[in-house]
Simulated assay, not measured.
Amino acid sequence: MTADAEIRACERTFRRFGLPLLVENHSARRDVFGRAAPFLLVVLLLQLTGAVRLDWSAWANVLAVVGAVAIIFAAYVGLNVLRGRRWSTLPQDVGLPELAFFVLAPAAVPAIIGAQWGTALSTAAGNLVLLAIVRGVVGYGLAATLWWGMGRIWRDLGSSLVRLIRFLPLLLIFSIALFYNAEVWQVFDHTPGVSDFILAGFFALLIAVILRIRLRSESQEVLDRAAAEHPEVAELPPLTRPQQMNIAAMVGTNQLLQVIVISAGVGLFFFALGTLTITDGVLEAWSIDGGSWQQRFSLAGADLLITQTLLRVSVALATFTGLYYAISVLTDALYRADFVDDMAEQMAEVFAHRVRYLQLLASREDDRLDAPLATDRGNGQD
């Protein structure tokens, strides 16, 4: 493998572990928005449907979409001309002008076609939020971290459930007793639909805050443990603050993924348990309507029932379990030791690649500096 190929392999390793900021000369224009450009293009094309109006005829809507395509095309040609490029040039990187185009051009379509100013403003605001999400998810490698974590989901599910049984036996017993409590079902049977999203957002924020409390100290411990396995790391340039934040985001995302795995496992357990045991007779005895939708099916000759209320109760117990597990993550020293060991092993592999990566970059830079000197000496001899 050539030096350049080995450098690219190290950079792929950093990105695979969700640490793109370890790549030298990392650029948001190229490495964040440039990589997300295909996704942003798909979003932009989908937003052309903003020109459609339900009170128009089919032919009028077809013409509106054609007009929207023409507006976007003309706007992009104008952007290339203003930047001194050929009119058909595709962007090599995504800078501020291209980002402004992504925000404003789709918003201009419903404003020009149909004077839909509300749709235009919401489109622009939504695109700004989307760019912020892309900056965080792609810039800090959260998507790659989740992808890497999802690749280990079955192993994590087993180990996380073992931790759950070891740390939270009383919670499991309490949750099962709570599941067969009529008052719990009655509460979630009459909960407004919007409350589901508000409660989900509240508990998700609460779990994130709990996990954030010890994130800095755990990240530093992971770094110290990994650096101890590679003494040559001490000779490298220290990690920058953005790089440290990238590592902390990776550690926190892995920790959050374990909470999600725990919650998903518990939620599926109660959903299956309720499907098998909560019958029409039980719902009638508890005065439960079942929510706004129900689904019946047969299994081995038995009539089973799935209801909206069953789903709500299962998700609620899964969320409570995830919250309790997040608190255990914060307070249980044995869990933290297991988690830090796992993350330190991963970071040790990353540091091994970083040592080699920076050596290759330094060697390549030395070769570039030596090349002009060799040329000058050759010219002098001539």
Rank of each mutant, 00 (worst) to 15 (best):
D338I: 06
R216C: 01
F17C: 06
I165T: 13
G274A: 05
G118H: 05
L273M: 13
S314K: 03
G322L: 05
I112R: 01
E232M: 09
L104C: 12
A248M: 15
L178P: 00
S159N: 12
F102E: 07
A144Q: 14
Q244W: 06
L206F: 15
P192D: 03
G274W: 00
T123N: 01
A28T: 12
R356E: 12
I112T: 06
T331D: 10
A75I: 01
I306N: 09
V261F: 08
L128W: 02
S287A: 13
A272M: 14
T319E: 03
N181T: 13
F73K: 09
T307G: 00
G118N: 10
W154K: 10
M245I: 13
V266L: 02
T277M: 08
A105Y: 04
L157H: 08
P106G: 11
S287C: 02
V259W: 05
H190L: 10
R83Q: 14
R214A: 14
A5S: 12
M343N: 08
W154M: 11
G151L: 04
R83G: 14
Q243T: 05
L257T: 08
S298L: 10
A204T: 14
L46S: 08
L130R: 05
E218S: 06
D224G: 00
N61A: 04
E11Q: 12
T191N: 03
G201V: 06
R214I: 08
Q243N: 05
A371I: 01
A115G: 09
G158Q: 08
L130P: 04
G118L: 14
G136M: 09
A120Y: 04
E24T: 11
L96K: 04
V259L: 07
D4M: 08
R155W: 11
D156Q: 13
Y140V: 04
L317H: 03
L48N: 09
L121A: 15
